[in-house]
Structures are given as structure tokens and as C-alpha cells.
Amino acid sequence: MPDTVATGPGPAPSGTALRELTFGEAIREALAEEMRRDPRVVLLGEDVAEAGTPFKVVKGLVEEFGKDRVVDTPISEAGFTGLAVGAAMTGLRPIVDIMFGDFLALIMDQVVNQAAKIHYMSGGKWKVPMVIRATMGATRRSAAQHSQSLHAWPSHVPGLKVAIPSTPYDAKGLLKAAIRDDNPIVFFEDKISYAKVKGPVPDEDYVIPLGVADIKREGRDITLVATSSMVQVALGAAAMLEEIGINAEVVDPRTTWPLDEKTLIESVRKTSRCIVVDEGYYRYGITGEIASVIAEGAFYDLDGPVRRIGARHVPVPFSPPLEDATVPTERDLFTMARQMCNK
């Protein structure tokens, strides 16, 4: 595999010079721009200041914004996430950094019982404008407690919005939209993509509305619905499929909630076949929900059942050959798509 994967240009205004940024650089730029734009935006988390987190994604922010706005916290995920909920209710727009998405398990009461419900329980009186940035993704040999992709969890809870970008362009635009949104948003960043995925990002300010899918590759024979890290996998599989005469469309929902059901259904009504691929666990996960939305919405146009590929239903193992066996691959998608298209 190459060190970096190039992503296609996003729907930027024509005639604009596009720079290439990595996924991580795009996220840092979104954070910096929003902190410049709005003094109420603060960043809280473990080792976010001088260290810039272990992934170095927020490196440099403390130099520009100071330690009052880029705040190192104790290792108290529930405490500082709950603190951010209270601060969001009372005038700040906090962003909390959850170093590993696995630690969602530590903050779930603050997210699910507090942040998600306060607006509703108060009859719409209190608002909780905050962003929870969490990582996801396996294959870093980090074993079962530092490798999961748990975006299905917050997607299940009314009151939360969930973003799961795949490209630098999307990451920047969605993160800026999330920071400006008046609701609690869980924003998932694939760890591998930070340095590996590179793509064009325009200079000027832009946001991508939450709830709008993006067609990453147009095709007519089969729809591959893919999220986050799996978008690159789907694009790789699509290139392999092209060689055997199968023209695959790749659709990225970009947010799991709100979910752009219309774009997903329209794509499958056109192609009549669909595989949903996601790095979360296969069972009771994102793939099941999206497959059922498509089955309900495109039933009479489908040539066969919507198929799914997700992470294997095991704790993520340490040993490289074991871990690699848990994550969907281009070959998995290629084989399934080929079979569905009878080629």
C-alpha cells in the first residue's frame, strides 16, 4: 500500500486553487478556523495542549489560542465530557477530544443520558452545542481496547448527531458545521486516515451540512455504500470491478444521523444492487440500519437482497494476521460484488 491515498476533489467552487491536505491537517484547520471565528469555542481533552494528542492532530493550537482555550484535562473522560455539557448549556461551545473511541464506554452517561436528552427533557429550553471528537479504526496493532469503531452507539440515540467523514474535504466541512450546530455531535475520525488520506481542500471558508451524502464515484451496476475508512476500500474495490466490466457507484453517507436516505435509495434504484460496508461491528450495526433503509425504499428496484460487510464480531485482536482478518478489505467487497453481478 502507498503511504498516502489521494482522494478526488470535493465539490469545491470551480476556478479555485485546491491545496492538498491530509485528513489530520484538514481537521486541525477546521478547529483553528472555528476557534478564530468564535471565542466561545474551547477544546478540552487529554494531552491536547503542548502534546497535540498522540496523533498530533491538534498540535500547534495551544500556541495560537493559549492554555485557556486548549485545555489539558485529567484522565477523567466522564468528568470532562460532563463538564463540557454543562459549559455548553451556559454559553460556551466546547469540543472534547476522546483520544480513542473505545473510551466512549466511559462517557456514555454524559453523552446519552445528559447531552442527548437535555434539550428534549427541558421542553426545548436548554441547548447543548458541543462536539465530541472521537477516533475509530483498527489495524494499528492496538488490540481490543484501542481499535473499535463504535459509531453505531451514538447513532442509536435520539438527540445526537453523528458525523463519520472519509476525506479531508469532508472532514473539514463537516467539523465546521458540527462546531456551529446547536446540538451535541459525535464526530468520528479514522486514525489511519489522519496521515494516510490526502486530498484537495479549498482555501476559503466552507461548511458541509450534516445529513447530506456524497457520491464518491458514479456507477450504474452496483452501489457500494461506504463510511469513513471503508470509502477508500470501496473505491479500491470499484477500480478492481471496473477491470472486469462492473461499474460500481460509491456513496458515502458522511453522517449516520441525520441520514440522507434519499440519496442512498436513489442510487440503489438506479443500480439495483447494493453492498453496505462499514468498519463497525457487523452485528446490530450501521450496515444493518442502512441496508434496511435501502431495502424498504428501493425494494421493487432491487435484483437481490442488500448485502453487508462489517467488522468481524470479535474483540479486535492484537496479532497482525488476526487483526487484519477482522476488517473488511477491497478483496471482500470485490468478491461479493462480482458474485452479485454474476461476473
Partner: peptide, 17 residues
Amino acid sequence: GGGAALATGAAYASKVL
């Protein structure tokens, strides 16, 4: 105990602002 972190966060906002 659900109010503990929320009250602390309101105090944080009050201080920052």
C-alpha cells in the same frame, strides 16, 4: 450524581466568560 459534572461545567463557563 448526574448533576455533578454539569454544575462543574456551568461554573467553568462562568469563570471563562
